[in-house]
């Protein structure tokens, strides 16, 4: 009895405050607003149809597959600007091994994944060993990896675009996993949602997730209590790179071709999606769900503008404005909630 009354002092916080302090609040509200906006403006032009819905879900899925691990890495306090270049590199690896060397698809995709894991580990290793900001280290990797991709592609095939993957992988069972459809829904959407669930589960419910928050919030404090800070970082760099390889496999299967320039700007879009989703640039705060909705907003805006009939040249203006508004909104909410 006394135990219970003593514990009364240490009571739970209110439901409303907990809701308001959820990092993904702005992204969820934003996604609803954007959806309503395009439903009104372009609802009668196909935005609300199944095909219209799929068109923005696929765009969102392709970004979201990378945005999920990128959000985890950012919560951990680091950036990975090399994921876009990694998509290009992994796509070319698959295309060359399959069409030039005659490897089966699984072997090409496996090599791309192994390569991605090595690049991710290298990124993490350099960040830890040099103490340089990951922004700089992975920016260097952004350039170097793209250069290597263009150089090797031209060296081996004489081209920067490699086609013929559709014919070369005809009937391969892996096609279903990466480029198939379930009930008319492209599998990329399921990859995205699957990774979102996995990422949320890891971040919110596992020991590793607790470490991600701890290292991102205060690296020194986390190290003081014995959290393996470096291991957490390297694993997350490997995850972002691996997600890029997964996206490359999906894109290559989908398009039937690879291009050395694939994935350009993806790194910034993934950061934007995470930030819209409430992830703090300084780390230690954010959620995977937020990044998922951030990616959804991206998809809806990009395809929604197309459905309105307005020239899609204006798409990026909309994205820029929205990014700024979302971040301001996140800031206001966060300040108010922490005062409450």
């Amino acid at each position: 009895m006394t135990q219970a009354t003593v514990s009364e002092r240490i009571r739970d916080v209110g439901f409303l405050r907990r809701l308001l302090t959820r990092p993904e609040l702005a992204a969820v509200a934003g996604a609803v607003l954007v959806f309503v906006f395009f439903a009104i403006v372009a609802g009668d032009r196909g935005f609300l149809t199944f095909g219209g819905t799929m068109s923005y879900l696929v765009v969102a899925a392709q970004l979201g597959i990378v945005a999920v691990p990128v959000a985890l890495l950012m919560i951990n306090g680091e950036f990975d600007l090399s994921v876009g270049s990694m998509v290009g590199a992994a796509g070319i690896i698959i295309a060359i091994t399959v069409t030039e060397f005659g490897w089966p698809l699984f072997a090409g995709a496996l090599l791309a994944c192994v390569f991605a894991l090595l690049v991710g580990a290298f990124n993490g290793w350099v960040v830890i060993k040099t103490g340089l900001p990951s922004f700089i280290v992975t920016l260097a990797m952004l350039f170097a990896l793209r250069g290597l991709t263009i150089g090797f592609s031209r060296l081996i095939t004489g081209r920067t675009q490699i086609g013929g993957l559709g014919a070369a992988t005809e009937g391969d069972p892996l096609r279903v996993i990466f480029a198939g459809e379930i009930a008319g829904i492209p599998v990329a959407v399921f990859w995205w949602l699957g990774l979102a669930v996995l990422g949320t589960y890891v971040l919110q419910r596992t020991v590793f997730g607790n470490w991600i928050f701890g290292v991102g919030g205060d690296k020194v404090a986390a190290r003081n209590v014995g959290v393996p800070v470096n291991r957490v970082k390297v694993i997350l760099f490997m995850c972002t790179a691996l997600s890029a390889a997964l996206l490359a496999t999906i894109q290559v299967m989908d398009a039937g071709s690879a291009d050395v320039l694939r994935g350009q700007l993806l790194e910034l879009q993934a950061i934007a999606a995470s930030v819209i989703g409430g992830v703090l640039l300084t780390g230690g705060y954010g959620s995977v769900v937020g990044a998922v909705f951030g990616a959804l907003i991206f998809g809806m805006v990009q395809q929604g503008i197309f459905f309105t009939g307005v020239n899609t040249d204006w798409f990026l203006v909309f994205v820029g404005a929205m990014l700024l508004v979302a971040v301001l909104f996140n800031n206001v909410i966060r300040k108010r909630a922490s005062k409450g």
């Binding site: 928050f213 701890g214 919030g217 205060d218 020194v220 404090a221 986390a222 209590v225 230690g284 705060y285």
Partner: peptide, 9 residues
């Protein structure tokens, strides 16, 4: 001295 606590947690 510099507390081993993570402020955002």
């Amino acid at each position: 001295q510099d507390l081993a606590l993570v402020n955002d947690m």
